[in-house]
Write a protein that binds this DNA or RNA. Structure first.
Lengths: 136, 136
DNA sequence: TTTTATGCAAAAGTTTTGCACTGAC
DNA sequence: GTCAGTGCAAAACTTTTGCATAAAA
C-alpha cells in the first residue's frame, strides 16, 4: 500500500489530509514493525515539535476504525501497523530484536476445528516471536 | 491444584499465609476463567471490606513470579489464571460468553518450524475464542 | 464559510511505589 | 521480636474527553 493509497482512503471516508496525517501515513507505509503510540509520537515529534499525544491517539484510532491500521495488544501496550493488504488470511512472525514482522501464510484453525467439536471458534490470535534471518 | 498445594508453594518460597492470600488461593483454584485485577478485587472485597487495590496487584504479581498464576494480555487489560499444572504444553479455547477456558492439546509450532526456515521461533501465542458447548 | 483537526488542560483507568502500621511466624 | 504484608496516599503511565482555536475543503 502506498502513501497515496492511504491518503485516498482517508479522503474517501471524509477525513481531511493534514501535514501530520501525511507524515503518519508515510511512517506506517515505510515500517514493517508494530509501533506503540509512544513510538509514533516520538517519530512525528521530530517534524512537528508541539505534537500532542491526544492527536496521535485520535489519529491511530480513526485509522484503525477505517481499517487502514491494525491494532495488536502486547505486554507493553497497544501496537499498530499498516493493515495487511494481502487478500489471504495469515499470521505473523515477529522479530524480538528488530521488531520487524513477516507474514506467515499458515493458519492452525483447520486443525483446531477438527479437534474441538464442542467448541465453536469465532476468532483467534496466533503470533510467533523469535529472531529473523538478519538478527539470529 | 488444591488450595493447600498453592499455600504450600507460597510457604516454601518464604511467603506468609494471610487470610487474604488463603481466599485468593481459593478463588483461583475454583475458577477456570481468567480474571482481571478488578474482578479479583471485587471478589475479595466481599470478605475484606477495606481491601486495597495495591495489595491485590502485589499478590497477583508475587504469585505470577512464583509460577502459581499465569498472566495473559487482553484488550481489556491483564488477566490471571492458575498456572496449568498439565505437564504437556498446550493452548486454550476461551469462551466469549462465560469466559471459561478449556485446554487445547494441540500446538501449531511443529508445522510452523517446517514452514519458516529463515526465522528462529522462540515463543508464541495461540488462543482460540468462541462459544463453549454450554453457551453456543 | 463550514466543518474537521489540533493543542491544551484535565480527567479517567490501570498499575506502581514509599511509608508507617499491623500481623504472621 | 523480627520481618513481611497491608492500607493509605500519592505518583506514574496510558488513553480519553471537552473546549476553544486553527486549518482543510
Amino acid at each position: 500500500m502506498t502513501v497515496q493509497e492511504v491518503l485516498n482512503v482517508m479522503s474517501e471516508k471524509g477525513l481531511r489530509i493534514t501535514e501530520q496525517r501525511k507524515t503518519l501515513a508515510e511512517l506506517f507505509v515505510n515500517t514493517t514493525s508494530q509501533l506503540t503510540a509512544k513510538q509514533v509520537h516520538s517519530f512525528l515529534s521530530q517534524t512537528y515539535s508541539g505534537l500532542s499525544f491526544d492527536t496521535v491517539y485520535r489519529n491511530l484510532r480513526v485509522l484503525t476504525e477505517m481499517n487502514v491500521l491494525e491494532q495488536f495488544v502486547f505486554e507493553d501496550g497497544m501496537k499498530f501497523k499498516l493493515h495487511c493488504s494481502s487478500e489471504e488470511h495469515h499470521h505473523h512472525l515477529i522479530c524480538l530484536q528488530c521488531e520487524k514482522t513477516f507474514p506467515l501464510h499458515y493458519c492452525p484453525m483447520e486443525e483446531v476445528k477438527h479437534l474441538s467439536h464442542d467448541f465453536e471458534p469465532v476468532k483467534h490470535k496466533f503470533e510467533v516471536f523469535g529472531y529473523c534471518k538478519d538478527c539470529k
